[in-house]
Simulated scan of single mutants.
Amino acid sequence: MLITAQFDSGNIEVVKAEDPAAIELKIRQDHQSDFYQWFHFKLYGELGTEHVMNITNAGGSAYPDGWQDYSAVASYDRETWFRVPTSYDGKTLTIRHTLEQESVYFAYFTPYSYERHQDLIHWAQQSSLVEHVLLGQTLDGRDLNLLVIGEPDERKQKIWVTARQHPGESMAEWFIEGMLGRLLDDEDGAVRKLLQDNVFYVVPNMNPDGSVRGHLRTNAVGVNLNREWQAPSLERSPEVFHVLNAMQETGVDLYLDIHGDENLPYNFLAGCEGVPCYNERHEKLAEKFKATLLAITPEFQTEFGYEVDQPGEANLTVASNAVAERFDCLAFTLEMPFKDNANLPDADFGWSANRSAQLGADVLSAVYAVANDLRV
């Protein structure tokens, strides 16, 4: 029996792996940070034998409540990821699985590899609608990629979408893949109309260093990028620094920042109600955006989510708040679950990569609904 995490986004430490019925593991912390929750490892074991994997430090993770009613994902081919029996006793997360093949992968959520990220960028680059812009490089020397979709024109609305500031929230890049698939479909009439008057600026992965390192929430030096938007620096947060500079050059009329939530088993939007500039115009746009999503997909809901900030009390280091205030625009943080959508559960797959991608495509209908009213 062997357990390894020596690959892209791998994260696990082996404490004891002698008895298949009593494997002990620990999740490694993000580099220079106390955050940890993401895991991704490979098990070589005995066919037909139940393997019981105990992650003994789960109770001290960043979001321990997130383990309640959670099931890990597993895959034999790295394409199809299914849920496996998982339990949590307040301290230890226990994953059980009987091997059907010689080796199997386990992860916190379906991984989105750096190789697939590069494939996505260069697939999109083939479209005549797309300009691929290199914004800069990360602290580990990886590319920070921007896709500009549509013909830039100062008369058009500028719609910015960023994903995976928190690298362990891999569902965010699956969302982007689904959104791009629809945006670049030249037989989709709504998209063709949308691109007549709007330009999309999409950053599929804001944190490639953290993604490759197997981090939950931070970049190469332990910085939470979604708390850097008031004063980013090249030394701590070049990812935010470069994106914010590009936003300054283009302007922003609508901003979506795509995330995953460890605790809540729902898809929801967190708005920018607490920023100083928020007014009736923003409120009406937000209501229309949400109402459209509610009408087109049962995967979205508005009953459960984060507590709404009181006027003037927004944290302006957070991306959606900072961008809303700086550009006087509508901005949302969109959250998806690590668990399942409790309103539409799927026992086999839970919330999945495919469902994330479909939501990415569906969100464009909500963008279409508000696009003509974005500017004053």
Rank of each mutant, 00 (worst) to 15 (best):
R375Q: 12
E154D: 10
V52G: 02
L269C: 00
L99V: 07
A347E: 14
Q6G: 05
Y266E: 02
R78L: 14
V130M: 04
E102P: 01
V243S: 00
W38G: 06
A190C: 07
P152A: 11
D119Q: 07
R281K: 02
P298F: 13
Y201F: 06
L93K: 01
A190W: 07
G178C: 05
D8Q: 06
C277Y: 14
S71V: 11
H97L: 12
L216N: 08
D30H: 00
L293A: 04
L129V: 06
Y105E: 10
V203R: 05
P152I: 07
H40M: 00
W38N: 12
G141L: 09
A190Q: 15
S320G: 09
S128I: 14
A17D: 05
V104I: 15
R236S: 13
G274L: 10
E228P: 12
Y44G: 02
R142Y: 10
I12A: 06
N219Q: 07
D34S: 15
Q32F: 03
E335R: 11
V202H: 03
Q29S: 12
V202Y: 03
L2R: 12
S113V: 11
C329R: 13
A369M: 08
N372L: 11
Y105F: 12
S356R: 10
D153Q: 14
A17Y: 05
R375D: 08
G271R: 01
T333D: 03
V221N: 10
D153L: 11
K16I: 10
V203I: 01
V203P: 10
V318I: 09
E46D: 07
A347P: 09
F338L: 13
H259R: 09
E325S: 08
A21Y: 03
A353S: 06
Q310M: 15
S33N: 14
W351I: 04
S211A: 01
V133N: 02
Q37T: 01
P85R: 15
F35M: 13
